[in-house]
Protein backbone atom coordinates (compact mmCIF):
# COMPACT_ATOMS: atom_id res chain seq x y z
CA UNK A 1 0.00 0.00 0.00
CA UNK A 2 3.08 2.26 0.03
CA UNK A 3 3.17 4.61 -2.91
CA UNK A 4 5.74 3.92 -5.57
CA UNK A 5 5.12 6.99 -7.69
CA UNK A 6 7.80 9.21 -6.19
CA UNK A 7 10.97 8.70 -4.24
CA UNK A 8 11.50 10.26 -0.83
CA UNK A 9 12.94 13.40 -2.33
CA UNK A 10 12.63 16.84 -0.77
CA UNK A 11 9.14 18.32 -0.87
CA UNK A 12 8.40 20.83 -3.58
CA UNK A 13 6.19 23.85 -2.98
CA UNK A 14 3.17 22.11 -4.45
CA UNK A 15 3.84 19.13 -2.18
CA UNK A 16 3.79 21.45 0.81
CA UNK A 17 0.48 22.94 -0.32
CA UNK A 18 -0.93 19.42 -0.65
CA UNK A 19 0.43 18.57 2.78
CA UNK A 20 -1.31 21.56 4.37
CA UNK A 21 -4.57 20.85 2.56
CA UNK A 22 -4.53 17.23 3.71
CA UNK A 23 -3.89 18.25 7.32
CA UNK A 24 -6.82 20.65 7.15
CA UNK A 25 -9.02 17.94 5.66
CA UNK A 26 -7.95 15.61 8.47
CA UNK A 27 -8.90 18.25 11.04
CA UNK A 28 -12.33 18.61 9.46
CA UNK A 29 -12.73 14.83 9.48
CA UNK A 30 -11.75 14.70 13.15
CA UNK A 31 -13.78 17.70 14.36
CA UNK A 32 -16.98 15.71 15.07
CA UNK A 33 -14.97 13.51 17.43
CA UNK A 34 -13.74 16.62 19.22
CA UNK A 35 -17.29 17.86 19.81
CA UNK A 36 -18.37 14.41 20.91
CA UNK A 37 -15.53 13.88 23.38
CA UNK A 38 -15.32 17.30 25.03
CA UNK A 39 -19.06 17.54 25.54
CA UNK A 40 -19.36 14.00 26.87
CA UNK A 41 -17.79 15.12 30.16
CA UNK A 42 -19.69 18.43 30.60
CA UNK A 43 -22.85 19.08 32.53
CA UNK A 44 -25.96 19.61 30.43
CA UNK A 45 -25.87 23.30 31.36
CA UNK A 46 -22.32 23.72 30.08
CA UNK A 47 -23.17 21.91 26.85
CA UNK A 48 -26.07 24.27 26.27
CA UNK A 49 -24.00 27.40 26.98
CA UNK A 50 -21.02 26.57 24.84
CA UNK A 51 -20.54 23.31 22.97
CA UNK A 52 -17.16 24.21 21.49
CA UNK A 53 -15.15 24.99 24.63
CA UNK A 54 -12.77 22.70 26.44
CA UNK A 55 -14.59 21.36 29.54
CA UNK A 56 -14.14 23.52 32.64
CA UNK A 57 -14.57 20.46 34.81
CA UNK A 58 -14.52 16.82 33.83
CA UNK A 59 -17.71 15.07 34.92
CA UNK A 60 -16.69 11.46 34.55
CA UNK A 61 -19.89 10.49 36.31
CA UNK A 62 -21.61 11.06 32.96
CA UNK A 63 -19.90 7.88 31.83
CA UNK A 64 -20.92 5.77 34.79
CA UNK A 65 -24.51 6.98 34.30
CA UNK A 66 -24.46 6.08 30.61
CA UNK A 67 -22.75 2.76 31.36
CA UNK A 68 -25.60 1.77 33.70
CA UNK A 69 -28.49 3.28 31.77
CA UNK A 70 -27.62 1.68 28.42
CA UNK A 71 -26.79 -1.57 30.22
CA UNK A 72 -23.58 -1.38 28.26
CA UNK A 73 -21.90 -4.63 29.42
CA UNK A 74 -24.96 -6.61 28.34
CA UNK A 75 -25.14 -4.94 24.92
CA UNK A 76 -21.41 -5.40 24.39
CA UNK A 77 -21.63 -9.09 25.24
CA UNK A 78 -24.58 -9.59 22.88
CA UNK A 79 -22.81 -7.77 20.05
CA UNK A 80 -19.67 -9.84 20.60
CA UNK A 81 -21.48 -13.18 20.69
CA UNK A 82 -23.50 -12.44 17.57
CA UNK A 83 -20.58 -11.02 15.58
CA UNK A 84 -18.10 -13.74 16.50
CA UNK A 85 -20.35 -16.76 15.99
CA UNK A 86 -21.83 -15.46 12.73
CA UNK A 87 -18.38 -14.67 11.42
CA UNK A 88 -16.85 -18.04 12.18
CA UNK A 89 -19.75 -19.93 10.64
CA UNK A 90 -19.98 -17.72 7.54
CA UNK A 91 -16.24 -18.03 6.96
CA UNK A 92 -16.18 -21.80 7.39
CA UNK A 93 -19.25 -22.63 5.28
CA UNK A 94 -18.33 -20.15 2.54
CA UNK A 95 -14.78 -21.44 2.28
CA UNK A 96 -16.06 -25.02 2.06
CA UNK A 97 -18.63 -24.18 -0.60
CA UNK A 98 -16.22 -22.07 -2.64
CA UNK A 99 -13.64 -24.86 -2.54
CA UNK A 100 -16.06 -27.43 -3.87
CA UNK A 101 -17.53 -25.04 -6.45
CA UNK A 102 -14.07 -24.41 -7.90
CA UNK A 103 -12.70 -27.95 -7.73
CA UNK A 104 -15.82 -29.77 -8.98
CA UNK A 105 -16.58 -27.51 -11.89
CA UNK A 106 -19.79 -29.19 -13.06
CA UNK A 107 -22.70 -27.50 -14.80
CA UNK A 108 -24.73 -27.72 -11.61
CA UNK A 109 -21.99 -26.07 -9.59
CA UNK A 110 -21.56 -23.30 -12.15
CA UNK A 111 -25.29 -22.66 -11.83
CA UNK A 112 -25.10 -22.64 -8.03
CA UNK A 113 -22.23 -20.18 -8.14
CA UNK A 114 -24.15 -17.92 -10.54
CA UNK A 115 -27.05 -17.97 -8.11
CA UNK A 116 -24.85 -16.82 -5.22
CA UNK A 117 -23.36 -14.05 -7.34
CA UNK A 118 -26.71 -12.79 -8.63
CA UNK A 119 -28.10 -12.72 -5.10
CA UNK A 120 -25.53 -10.07 -4.19
CA UNK A 121 -27.65 -7.54 -6.08
CA UNK A 122 -30.75 -8.14 -3.93
CA UNK A 123 -31.10 -5.35 -1.35
CA UNK A 124 -31.82 -6.55 2.16
CA UNK A 125 -34.95 -4.39 2.29
CA UNK A 126 -36.38 -6.40 -0.61
CA UNK A 127 -36.44 -9.63 1.36
CA UNK A 128 -36.76 -8.48 4.96
CA UNK A 129 -40.55 -8.67 5.16
CA UNK A 130 -40.97 -12.32 4.09
CA UNK A 131 -37.70 -13.23 5.85
CA UNK A 132 -39.37 -12.39 9.14
CA UNK A 133 -42.17 -14.77 8.28
CA UNK A 134 -39.69 -17.56 7.53
CA UNK A 135 -37.89 -16.84 10.81
CA UNK A 136 -41.29 -17.07 12.51
CA UNK A 137 -42.03 -20.44 10.91
CA UNK A 138 -38.73 -21.78 12.16
CA UNK A 139 -39.70 -20.59 15.64
CA UNK A 140 -36.51 -18.60 16.16
CA UNK A 141 -37.93 -15.08 16.37
CA UNK A 142 -36.55 -13.01 19.24
CA UNK A 143 -33.50 -15.22 19.63
CA UNK A 144 -29.82 -14.82 18.91
CA UNK A 145 -29.98 -18.08 17.02
CA UNK A 146 -32.50 -16.64 14.56
CA UNK A 147 -30.35 -13.58 14.04
CA UNK A 148 -27.15 -15.57 13.52
CA UNK A 149 -28.92 -17.87 11.10
CA UNK A 150 -30.06 -14.86 9.07
CA UNK A 151 -26.57 -13.35 9.03
CA UNK A 152 -25.20 -16.62 7.73
CA UNK A 153 -27.53 -16.72 4.77
CA UNK A 154 -27.12 -13.02 4.01
CA UNK A 155 -23.34 -13.03 4.37
CA UNK A 156 -22.59 -16.21 2.46
CA UNK A 157 -22.95 -14.94 -1.15
CA UNK A 158 -20.25 -12.23 -0.96
CA UNK A 159 -17.96 -14.46 1.10
CA UNK A 160 -18.26 -17.34 -1.38
CA UNK A 161 -17.58 -14.91 -4.21
CA UNK A 162 -14.38 -13.69 -2.52
CA UNK A 163 -13.15 -17.20 -1.66
CA UNK A 164 -14.03 -18.49 -5.12
CA UNK A 165 -11.60 -16.10 -6.79
CA UNK A 166 -8.91 -17.02 -4.29
CA UNK A 167 -9.27 -20.82 -4.48
CA UNK A 168 -8.87 -20.61 -8.25
CA UNK A 169 -5.38 -19.22 -7.72
CA UNK A 170 -4.24 -22.17 -5.57
CA UNK A 171 -2.32 -24.67 -7.70
CA UNK A 172 -3.93 -28.10 -7.84
CA UNK A 173 -0.53 -29.80 -7.47
CA UNK A 174 -0.30 -28.85 -3.81
CA UNK A 175 -3.56 -30.65 -3.08
CA UNK A 176 -2.55 -33.63 -5.19
CA UNK A 177 0.56 -34.01 -3.06
CA UNK A 178 -1.72 -34.24 -0.05
CA UNK A 179 -3.91 -36.86 -1.73
CA UNK A 180 -0.86 -38.98 -2.53
CA UNK A 181 0.08 -38.85 1.14
CA UNK A 182 -3.22 -40.60 1.78
CA UNK A 183 -5.28 -37.70 3.14
CA UNK A 184 -9.00 -37.72 2.39
CA UNK A 185 -10.69 -34.83 0.60
CA UNK A 186 -11.74 -33.42 3.94
CA UNK A 187 -8.23 -33.79 5.29
CA UNK A 188 -6.80 -32.01 2.26
CA UNK A 189 -9.29 -29.19 2.73
CA UNK A 190 -8.75 -28.83 6.45
CA UNK A 191 -5.00 -29.24 6.56
CA UNK A 192 -3.84 -27.84 3.22
CA UNK A 193 -6.47 -25.60 1.60
CA UNK A 194 -7.91 -23.82 4.63
CA UNK A 195 -4.53 -22.58 5.92
CA UNK A 196 -3.70 -21.31 2.44
CA UNK A 197 -6.93 -19.31 2.37
CA UNK A 198 -5.75 -17.22 5.31
CA UNK A 199 -5.24 -13.89 3.50
CA UNK A 200 -8.75 -14.02 2.05
CA UNK A 201 -10.10 -15.34 5.34
CA UNK A 202 -8.86 -12.16 7.01
CA UNK A 203 -10.58 -10.02 4.37
CA UNK A 204 -13.86 -11.93 4.64
CA UNK A 205 -13.87 -11.76 8.44
CA UNK A 206 -13.08 -8.06 8.53
CA UNK A 207 -15.78 -7.13 6.01
CA UNK A 208 -18.36 -9.26 7.81
CA UNK A 209 -17.31 -7.95 11.23
CA UNK A 210 -17.83 -4.33 10.24
CA UNK A 211 -21.19 -5.15 8.69
CA UNK A 212 -22.61 -7.32 11.48
CA UNK A 213 -21.25 -5.25 14.34
CA UNK A 214 -22.81 -2.06 12.99
CA UNK A 215 -26.04 -3.49 11.60
CA UNK A 216 -29.19 -2.04 13.07
CA UNK A 217 -32.10 -2.99 10.83
CA UNK A 218 -31.98 -6.80 10.93
CA UNK A 219 -31.52 -7.15 14.72
CA UNK A 220 -34.22 -4.53 15.27
CA UNK A 221 -36.64 -6.75 13.34
CA UNK A 222 -35.69 -10.07 14.93
CA UNK A 223 -34.83 -9.23 18.56
CA UNK A 224 -37.52 -7.78 20.79
CA UNK A 225 -36.36 -8.53 24.34
CA UNK A 226 -34.37 -5.69 25.90
CA UNK A 227 -31.85 -8.15 27.33
CA UNK A 228 -30.93 -9.33 23.82
CA UNK A 229 -30.11 -5.85 22.50
CA UNK A 230 -26.87 -5.29 20.61
CA UNK A 231 -25.00 -1.98 20.85
CA UNK A 232 -26.86 -0.28 17.96
CA UNK A 233 -30.22 -1.45 19.35
CA UNK A 234 -29.38 -0.32 22.88
CA UNK A 235 -28.24 3.06 21.57
CA UNK A 236 -31.39 3.50 19.54
CA UNK A 237 -33.65 2.57 22.44
CA UNK A 238 -31.71 4.90 24.71
CA UNK A 239 -31.97 7.79 22.27
CA UNK A 240 -35.70 7.37 22.03
CA UNK A 241 -35.91 8.16 25.74
CA UNK A 242 -33.09 10.63 26.38
CA UNK A 243 -32.56 12.35 23.04
CA UNK A 244 -32.16 15.86 24.43
CA UNK A 245 -30.21 14.81 27.51
CA UNK A 246 -26.86 15.17 25.84
CA UNK A 247 -24.89 14.74 29.07
CA UNK A 248 -25.97 11.08 29.12
CA UNK A 249 -26.47 10.54 25.39
CA UNK A 250 -22.97 11.67 24.36
CA UNK A 251 -21.05 9.41 26.76
CA UNK A 252 -23.36 6.58 25.67
CA UNK A 253 -22.32 7.26 22.07
CA UNK A 254 -18.64 7.32 23.02
CA UNK A 255 -19.05 3.96 24.76
CA UNK A 256 -20.90 2.63 21.73
CA UNK A 257 -18.18 3.50 19.24
CA UNK A 258 -15.19 2.62 21.44
CA UNK A 259 -15.03 -1.16 20.78
CA UNK A 260 -15.11 -0.82 16.99
CA UNK A 261 -12.60 2.06 17.06
CA UNK A 262 -10.22 -0.06 19.14
CA UNK A 263 -10.76 -2.96 16.74
CA UNK A 264 -9.98 -0.66 13.82
CA UNK A 265 -6.91 1.03 15.29
CA UNK A 266 -5.34 -2.24 16.38
CA UNK A 267 -5.97 -4.02 13.07
CA UNK A 268 -6.00 -1.06 10.73
CA UNK A 269 -3.36 -2.39 8.35
CA UNK A 270 -5.38 -5.57 7.79
CA UNK A 271 -8.64 -3.66 7.58
CA UNK A 272 -7.41 -1.24 4.95
CA UNK A 273 -5.86 -4.07 2.95
CA UNK A 274 -8.97 -6.16 3.42
CA UNK A 275 -11.18 -3.42 2.05
CA UNK A 276 -8.93 -3.00 -0.98
CA UNK A 277 -8.82 -6.77 -1.56
CA UNK A 278 -12.55 -7.21 -0.97
CA UNK A 279 -13.43 -4.80 -3.73
CA UNK A 280 -11.64 -6.63 -6.53
CA UNK A 281 -13.84 -6.17 -9.52
CA UNK A 282 -16.37 -8.85 -10.26
Amino acid sequence: MKTKTRSKSAMSISDIIVQVLMMLAALIFLSPFYFLLVNSVKTLGDIMVNAADWPAQFHWSNYSNAWKMTRFPEALTNSLIITIISNLLIALFSAMAAYRLVRANTGLNRFIFMMFVSAMVIPFQSIMIPLLKVIGWLGVTNSMFGLILSYMGLGIPLSIFLFHGFVKSIPLEIEEAGTVDGASSYGVFGRIVLPMLKPMLVTVIILNCLWIWNDYLLPSLILQSPELRTIPLATFAFFGQYSKQWDIALPALVLGITPIIIFFLSLQRYIVEGVAAGSVKG
Binding site: N214, D215, I231, T235, I261
Partner: peptide
Protein backbone atom coordinates in the same frame (compact mmCIF):
# COMPACT_ATOMS: atom_id res chain seq x y z
CA UNK B 1 -10.03 9.56 6.63
CA UNK B 2 -11.06 5.92 6.89
CA UNK B 3 -12.04 5.93 10.55
CA UNK B 4 -15.63 7.27 10.26
CA UNK B 5 -16.39 4.29 8.06
CA UNK B 6 -15.96 1.70 10.79
CA UNK B 7 -18.67 3.34 12.90
CA UNK B 8 -22.15 2.19 12.02
CA UNK B 9 -24.58 4.57 10.34
CA UNK B 10 -26.93 4.62 13.31
CA UNK B 11 -24.36 5.83 15.87
Amino acid sequence: FFMPNVIGGLL
